[in-house]
Lab assay of single mutants.
Amino acid sequence: ETQAGIKEEIRRQEFLLNSLHRDLQGGIKDLSKEERLWEVQRILTALKRKLR
């Protein structure tokens, strides 16, 4: 995994995270989306740690 590859994956995950946040802010309670949001946040945290 290169730095560029990790950064690209971070961009993808952040896009997905923002999309999930928008969907959930629409007021629709969706447990699967909430679980996915937490999963994406965990992935992002792990990726950012790899960059250090």
Score class of each variant (00 low, 15 high):
34 E>V: 15
9 E>M: 09
18 N>C: 14
28 I>A: 07
23 D>S: 07
32 S>E: 15
36 R>K: 12
20 L>N: 00
25 Q>H: 12
3 Q>C: 11
32 S>V: 13
16 L>A: 02
32 S>C: 11
12 R>K: 11
41 Q>T: 09
47 L>A: 00
47 L>R: 00
5 G>I: 12
51 L>E: 02
47 L>W: 01
41 Q>D: 03
43 I>N: 10
27 G>M: 05
22 R>V: 08
7 K>N: 05
43 I>A: 06
15 F>A: 15
33 K>T: 12
33 K>W: 11
1 E>L: 11
6 I>G: 00
14 E>H: 07
45 T>F: 09
51 L>F: 03
5 G>N: 09
38 W>D: 13
40 V>T: 07
44 L>T: 00
14 E>S: 05
32 S>D: 14
15 F>H: 14
6 I>A: 01
5 G>R: 14
43 I>K: 09
50 K>W: 04
25 Q>Y: 07
17 L>N: 01
11 R>E: 06
41 Q>A: 07
14 E>F: 04
39 E>I: 04
5 G>Y: 14
44 L>I: 12
43 I>R: 08
13 Q>V: 15
48 K>V: 05
6 I>R: 01
22 R>S: 08
4 A>P: 05
44 L>F: 02
10 I>P: 00
21 H>M: 14
36 R>Y: 05
14 E>D: 01
36 R>V: 07
20 L>I: 07
40 V>D: 00
43 I>F: 09
18 N>F: 11
3 Q>L: 15
11 R>P: 01
1 E>P: 06
21 H>P: 01
37 L>R: 03
45 T>E: 14
26 G>Y: 09
22 R>N: 10
46 A>W: 07
29 K>R: 12
38 W>L: 13
26 G>A: 08
34 E>G: 04
4 A>Q: 10
49 R>W: 05
32 S>Q: 14
31 L>G: 08
42 R>E: 07
17 L>G: 01
20 L>A: 01
8 E>H: 04
44 L>G: 00
1 E>R: 05
45 T>W: 11
28 I>G: 09
23 D>L: 06
22 R>F: 08
13 Q>W: 15
29 K>Y: 09
28 I>C: 07
35 E>N: 08
8 E>C: 12
22 R>H: 10
19 S>P: 00
32 S>L: 13
9 E>V: 05
22 R>Y: 06
11 R>G: 03
16 L>W: 05
9 E>L: 07
22 R>C: 12
39 E>H: 05
28 I>N: 09
9 E>D: 05
46 A>E: 14
23 D>T: 04
17 L>S: 02
52 R>V: 14
19 S>K: 11
40 V>H: 03
34 E>N: 07
7 K>M: 14
29 K>W: 15
34 E>A: 07
15 F>I: 15
35 E>C: 08
46 A>S: 05
3 Q>D: 06
26 G>V: 07
15 F>W: 08
6 I>F: 02
51 L>N: 01
7 K>P: 02
6 I>M: 03
10 I>Y: 01
34 E>Q: 13
48 K>Q: 06
47 L>T: 01
26 G>L: 12
18 N>G: 06
47 L>N: 00
31 L>C: 09
32 S>F: 11
46 A>L: 10
38 W>P: 01
29 K>G: 09
26 G>E: 10
37 L>C: 09
33 K>E: 02
45 T>M: 09
18 N>H: 11
8 E>W: 06
1 E>Q: 09
36 R>W: 04
15 F>Q: 12
5 G>M: 14
40 V>Y: 02
22 R>E: 09
36 R>S: 08
4 A>E: 13
38 W>C: 14
19 S>F: 07
32 S>W: 13
43 I>L: 14
17 L>T: 00
27 G>D: 10
35 E>W: 10
7 K>T: 04
44 L>Y: 01
52 R>H: 14
43 I>G: 02
45 T>P: 00
1 E>V: 09
3 Q>A: 11
31 L>A: 14
36 R>D: 06
16 L>T: 02
12 R>T: 03
23 D>V: 05
50 K>N: 06
11 R>Q: 06
23 D>G: 05
32 S>H: 13
7 K>E: 07
25 Q>P: 03
41 Q>R: 10
24 L>E: 02
17 L>R: 05
49 R>Q: 14
21 H>V: 13
22 R>A: 13
8 E>V: 04
45 T>G: 05
28 I>H: 08
40 V>P: 00
8 E>K: 09
35 E>M: 13
50 K>A: 13
49 R>A: 14
28 I>E: 10
33 K>Q: 07
1 E>A: 11
6 I>H: 01
42 R>T: 06
31 L>Y: 09
7 K>S: 05
31 L>F: 11
47 L>Q: 00
18 N>A: 14
43 I>Y: 10
24 L>H: 03
4 A>T: 06
22 R>M: 10
4 A>H: 10
17 L>A: 05
13 Q>Y: 15
34 E>I: 14
43 I>P: 00
13 Q>K: 05
5 G>K: 14
40 V>Q: 02
27 G>Y: 03
19 S>V: 10
37 L>G: 01
27 G>W: 04
8 E>G: 05
38 W>H: 13
31 L>I: 10
5 G>A: 15
44 L>M: 02
1 E>N: 10
28 I>R: 05
45 T>H: 10
42 R>C: 07
29 K>E: 07
6 I>V: 03
30 D>L: 02
10 I>F: 01
21 H>D: 04
2 T>R: 08
26 G>S: 14
32 S>G: 10
27 G>S: 07
26 G>M: 10
13 Q>F: 15
50 K>P: 02
11 R>T: 06
9 E>T: 03
2 T>N: 09
39 E>N: 04
6 I>K: 01
12 R>F: 05
40 V>E: 02
28 I>T: 10
24 L>M: 09
5 G>C: 15
30 D>K: 02
47 L>I: 01
12 R>D: 02
48 K>D: 01
11 R>L: 08
25 Q>A: 13
13 Q>P: 01
23 D>W: 06
31 L>W: 06
47 L>E: 00
35 E>S: 09
4 A>F: 10
20 L>C: 07
47 L>C: 01
39 E>Q: 08
15 F>N: 15
50 K>T: 06
21 H>A: 11
37 L>P: 00
3 Q>M: 15
12 R>N: 07
52 R>M: 14
47 L>P: 00
27 G>N: 08
35 E>F: 11
49 R>L: 11
2 T>L: 10
51 L>S: 01
29 K>S: 07
50 K>I: 15
38 W>V: 12
44 L>N: 00
40 V>M: 06
40 V>K: 01
2 T>C: 08
10 I>E: 01
38 W>R: 15
12 R>I: 07
40 V>F: 04
33 K>N: 05
46 A>P: 00
15 F>P: 01
28 I>F: 08
35 E>A: 11
46 A>I: 12
52 R>N: 13
46 A>V: 10
2 T>F: 08
17 L>P: 00
36 R>M: 14
3 Q>W: 12
19 S>Y: 04
34 E>W: 15
1 E>K: 05
19 S>A: 12
5 G>Q: 15
39 E>F: 04
52 R>F: 14
14 E>I: 12
34 E>D: 04
1 E>D: 09
16 L>G: 00
5 G>V: 10
22 R>K: 15
26 G>F: 08
19 S>W: 08
18 N>V: 13
34 E>H: 09
37 L>W: 05
22 R>D: 07
23 D>I: 06
36 R>H: 07
34 E>Y: 15
